[in-house]
């Protein structure tokens, strides 16, 4: 049996929509942003419309059921139902879009801003391009000392950081739900694995207020840790972050 063209077209559109959601949200595990999806669908619908109407017969077939619905006396009942349903759907959609919600307005904000070349902390100036973790060298030279440092870093993390960043370092600490932007998930491949240790030092030491202008507004609730932790403590925490997640800090040198 031949499927009516209108049904075909609707099927294709719904299929593509479902395909986007399925592929991105479930198969790839990265949701497709609704703003982008609506733009995608707008042009997909335009494309489907183009394919289904470029010949006269095809266009007529596509519109025939709609025409019949409006004009055919035998379809009076279904017509009445549709004519009531459509305004209701539009009203419902409009209401949903217009009703105020508790969601904060969308903001464009880059979470990994370009770091400054140098940063001032602890009354000193650090050059982020050459700054290195002073404890990193023990990893190969004195493994037992390194383990000790990592353990100390873990203690500092549990005492200070896990409330937001979580005891599994996955950004799901007890307070995480209340924060926007969400605390960083260090387990994710896109976070600390992409960064040098000096970047982490900068972000930890100067916190939200240390963000450059491009990352404004300063809504990050990351504290300015140089007021609470010593320089060495920060470096130890950084050791712990990489150790626990099993990631390597990014480096421009070949190992």
């Amino acid at each position: 049996m031949k499927i009516p063209r209108l049904l075909q077209a609707v099927g294709v559109i719904v299929g593509i929509y479902a395909g986007f959601v399925l592929v991105f949200d479930y198969l790839l595990g990265q949701v497709i942003p609704s703003s982008l999806l609506s733009m995608y669908m707008f042009f997909v619908i335009a494309g489907v419309f183009m394919v289904y109407t470029f010949t006269e017969e095809s266009a007529r077939e596509l519109v025939a059921p709609i025409k019949a619905l409006v004009e055919d006396p035998s379809k009076k009942r279904i017509r009445n139902v549709v004519f009531i349903l459509i305004p209701l759907l539009v009203a419902g959609f409009t209401y949903q879009r217009m009703s105020p919600s508790f969601e904060a307005p969308v903001e464009l904000r880059s979470i990994h801003p370009a770091p400054p070349a140098t940063v001032k902390a602890y009354g000193k100036r650090y050059d982020l391009a050459t700054l290195k973790n002073p404890f990193r060298k023990y990893e190969k030279a004195k493994p037992e000392k390194f383990r000790e440092l990592v353990r100390e870093g873990g203690d500092i993390y549990i005492q200070n950081c896990q409330y937001c960043h979580g005891d599994k370092l996955d950004g799901r600490g007890p307070y995480a739900a209340g924060l926007n932007p969400t605390p960083l998930n260090f387990q994710d491949v896109g976070t600390i694995a992409q960064l040098q240790e000096s970047f982490l030092f900068w972000r930890i030491a100067t916190g939200g207020p240390g963000l450059p202008k491009e990352a404004a507004p300063w809504i990050s609730s990351m504290p300015v840790w140089q007021d609470f932790l010593t320089e060495e403590e920060i470096w130890k925490v950084i050791l712990f972050l990489y150790d626990y997640t099993g990631r390597r800090p990014r480096s421009w040198e070949h190992e």
């Binding site: 942003p33 969601e103 464009l108 926007n180 896109g190």
Partner: peptide, 24 residues
């Protein structure tokens, strides 16, 4: 026309764990 900086709602931001989309 896929923009470089995606416009994300807060929920999507949370789901993605940040503003960076691996595939888009």
């Amino acid at each position: 026309f896929t923009p470089h900086t995606l416009v994300l709602t807060n929920e999507e931001l949370k789901a993605l764990g940040g503003p960076y989309h691996k595939y888009l």
